[in-house]
């Protein structure tokens, strides 16, 4: 995910300072990893360097001095461009689960103490438990739309993983056979 474009998007809704941006990010993307303040700061610096954002002024209101940023016209164009660009439909499977299963099958057929079936069973249980958690979060009547959206996103991806694991578990005997007797 492009943090740069997300921050630019948040700035596009109105001028804001770094701490405020972090808070708003975490509220809007509750299921994402929380942003570190340092990361917000360096990203803002780069945006200014590239002419996509600029310093609007500083506020003090009794506390430490804080720099307020806003998006430039070029920043708005860049944001619109990014929003319209489709993401590549993941051409490579780089998931850890996939790698583990393949290696487990390979090593198990070579006699190493690996059990791909047991791994798949445990991983599926973990996925299901996580899905129940996310569903409970989503089904809470007090959940706001951002929470529901991000939980949905995660749920659909976990469901895709789960389907793949279920299918793979069913294919294990044939896969093992194929590797042992090519």
């Amino acid at each position: 995910m492009s943090t740069r474009h997300v921050l630019l998007g948040l700035l596009a809704t109105g001028p804001s300072h770094g701490y405020d941006l972090k808070r708003r990010h975490d509220a809007r993307f509750p299921q994402a990893r929380p942003l570190a303040y340092g990361q917000v700061y360096t990203t803002l610096q780069r945006l200014v360097r590239d002419g996509l954002a600029e310093v609007e002024g500083t506020d003090a209101d009794g506390g430490p001095e804080r720099t307020r940023y806003r998006a430039t016209d070029e920043g708005a164009r860049e944001l619109a461009d990014w929003l319209g660009r489709i993401a590549p439909p993941a051409p490579f499977v780089t998931n850890e689960i996939f790698a583990k299963v393949v290696v487990a099958i390979l090593t198990a057929t070579a006699g190493a103490p690996a059990d791909p079936a047991a791994y798949l069973r445990d991983q599926r249980a973990a996925h299901k438990a996580r899905m129940r958690e996310l569903t409970a979060v989503k089904a809470n009547p007090d959940a706001d739309l951002a929470t529901v959206l991000s939980a949905d996103y995660a749920l659909h991806h976990l469901d895709a993983d789960l389907r793949w694991m279920t299918t793979t578990a069913g294919r294990l005997p044939a896969l093992t056979q194929e590797i042992q007797h090519p």
Partner: peptide
């Protein structure tokens, strides 16, 4: 029985429900 995942047992929802 679908086993509870060991590392998620503490946070799992069913104990709340």
């Amino acid at each position: 029985e679908v086993a509870e995942a060991p590392d998620l047992a503490e946070t799992a929802q069913p104990t709340e429900a």
